[in-house]
Design a protein around this nucleic acid. Structure first.
Length: 192
DNA sequence: CCCTGATTCGC
DNA sequence: GCGAATCAGG
């Protein structure tokens, strides 16, 4: 796919508008990767968009693309699978209501990503769906354990403050939903 | 894990 | 010039 004048115009426009490279790539159509977009952006010298200037001197590193140099050194990576098991919770069921597959109450957050309805300006402002947790299932600080989501809900000083409490993978402080939200989609677009 | 832009370099 | 691979950071 060649960069026609028209496409470059779109690229510039969207880039200026602050769209991310991947978004622009999607906008331009298949066959255009975000790398292509970024590469073009750089070539056009319109990279620095709204960037402070905190680019640590890119530590150049010898790379090797295809061709002669083998991609992955394949250093026989030793499998360090230390699985302590650590199931230190035999019967500490506590009094947490175990409703595994509850009826689609309010906690049912459909994660179905709509394909890609890129219509240039079709902003689907939703995803707000903040999860509501019934009082019966609300947990306090004491109920948190190694694999409960510690996402705080509500005002810490309010009496309805509680934690998400849904299961989270070991090592993760939040459930899947919230861990994503934690630092991924703070706000895909803009604040305020 | 996901994502972002930045850079390098073989093509 | 192009963009995949890679990097560095959030």
């Amino acid at each position: 796919m060649a960069w026609t004048d028209e496409r470059v115009a779109i690229l510039k426009k969207l880039w200026m508008e602050g769209l991310s490279a991947s978004q622009i790539a999607a906008e331009l159509g298949e066959g255009v990767t975000r790398n292509a977009v970024i590469g073009k952006v750089h070539r056009l010298k319109l990279s620095g968009r709204a960037k402070p200037a905190s680019s640590a001197p890119r530590a150049r590193k010898p790379r090797a693309t295809a061709s002669s140099t083998p991609r992955r050194p394949s250093g026989a990576a030793s499998n360090t699978s230390a699985r302590p098991a650590s199931s230190s919770r035999p019967a500490a069921a506590s009094s947490a209501p175990r409703r595994s597959s509850g009826p689609a109450v309010a906690g049912n957050t459909a994660l179905k990503m709509s394909a890609d309805t890129e219509a240039e300006q079709s902003f689907e402002l939703n995803a707000e769906s903040e999860i509501f947790i019934p009082e019966a299932e609300r947990i306090g600080l004491m109920e948190l354990n190694e694999h409960t989501c510690k996402w705080p809900i509500g005002d810490p000083v309010a009496d309805d403050f509680h934690f998400c409490g849904r299961h989270s993978d070991e090592g993760k402080p939040y459930c899947e939903f919230h861990s994503k939200r934690a630092y991924h989609s703070l706000d895909r677009r803009k604040k305020n």
